[in-house]
């Protein structure tokens, strides 16, 4: 038990980060599942983090309502920019959302209330392990249900062929907006959770690199199922810690691992079909 206490006090933040990154990877998985390559999730995470932190610091709202507000605020932003932005497709959508993210970051940088580049410090510790576990579980359950629902099938249809989906009478624009703003909600909650266990937030954490990191987590894990993004985010979060003993060579190896995984498993680590085939073979072997 003492071993566990030591372990937990050393690595709890790491475990929290894994959970938050899993939420972020799922948020981008959602938009990808609708065929949208949106890179706005880091910015949405930032909006959630700042709104929640400010509510905690200035108005002393309860943590539950703070989390909710952290999710709702970026959702509203997503609804506003969604209509014009979602007309774009492919890399152009990706670039427009990246540009939007930069605009958000620079705005936060120049506002008085957000503390500018110095960020917000002294955010009280409110996030606990079970908060993250519960929210992650609810999100996974919700997304799994969504996949099998009418909405999920519409997403799938839009992803496969937008024109055909439109011809079939699917309200493409509305479904895209739904995926975009739901993704924003999840990212916002993740941001709010993160802000309340790291004591401090600053604009730098929600920029270009972070947007690309989130995408990398989802794609590395594989986007064909919900397990992929969670696996990818866990690996990318834990890898630098596992490589700590390599000291100066750490980021070199980190980069190399990324390249090699992508090279040998281009569809992501967790590809349902391949995994199923693997287990079938395993069973066949035993029988």
């Amino acid at each position: 038990m003492e071993w566990f206490n030591d372990f937990w006090s050393t690595y709890s933040t790491l475990v929290f980060s894994v959970g938050v990154h899993a939420l972020l990877a799922l948020s981008i998985w959602l938009t990808l599942s609708c065929g949208l390559l949106s890179l706005a999730n880091a910015a949405f995470m930032g909006v959630g983090a700042y709104v929640s932190a400010l509510l905690t610091l200035h108005l002393e709202w309860s943590f539950g309502s703070v989390l909710l507000a952290g999710g709702i605020a970026p959702t509203l932003v997503a609804l506003i920019i969604g209509a014009p932005v979602l007309r774009l497709s492919g890399v152009y959508l990706a670039m427009a959302t990246l540009a939007f993210g930069e605009v958000v970051r620079i705005t936060v940088l120049n506002l008085e209330i957000t503390g500018g580049p110095e960020g917000l410090n002294g955010i009280p510790l409110a996030t606990e392990g079970w908060h993250i576990a519960l929210i992650l579980a609810v999100t996974v359950y919700g997304l799994a249900r969504l996949r099998r629902s009418k909405v999920g099938r519409a997403f799938e249809a839009i992803k496969e062929d937008e024109v055909a989906a439109r011809l079939m009478g699917i309200n493409v624009d509305r479904y895209k907006l739904l995926a975009f703003s739901l993704g924003a909600f999840i990212a916002g909650v993740a941001g709010a959770l993160n802000a309340h266990f790291t004591f401090f937030i600053s604009p730098r954490e929600y920029g270009f690199e972070n947007a690309v990191d989130i995408l990398t987590m989802a794609v590395l894990g594989g986007t064909s199922s919900l397990i992929g993004p969670m696996l990818g985010s866990s690996i990318l979060t834990l890898l630098p810690e596992l490589l700590r003993s390599l000291q100066d060579f750490r980021s070199l190896v980190n980069g190399a691992v990324l390249v090699l995984v992508v090279l040998f498993l281009p569809k992501g680590l967790w590809e349902s079909r391949r995994i199923r085939a693997f287990f079938k073979r395993l069973k066949g072997g035993q029988a």
Binding site: V212, L215, T216, V219, L220, F249, R250, S251, L252, N254, G255, A256, V257, L258, V259, V262, L263
Partner: peptide, 12 residues
């Protein structure tokens, strides 16, 4: 994504 990895390697 692969080129991101390459970028990280070159930088480090």
């Amino acid at each position: 994504i692969a080129t991101i990895g390459v970028g990280i390697m070159l930088t480090s």
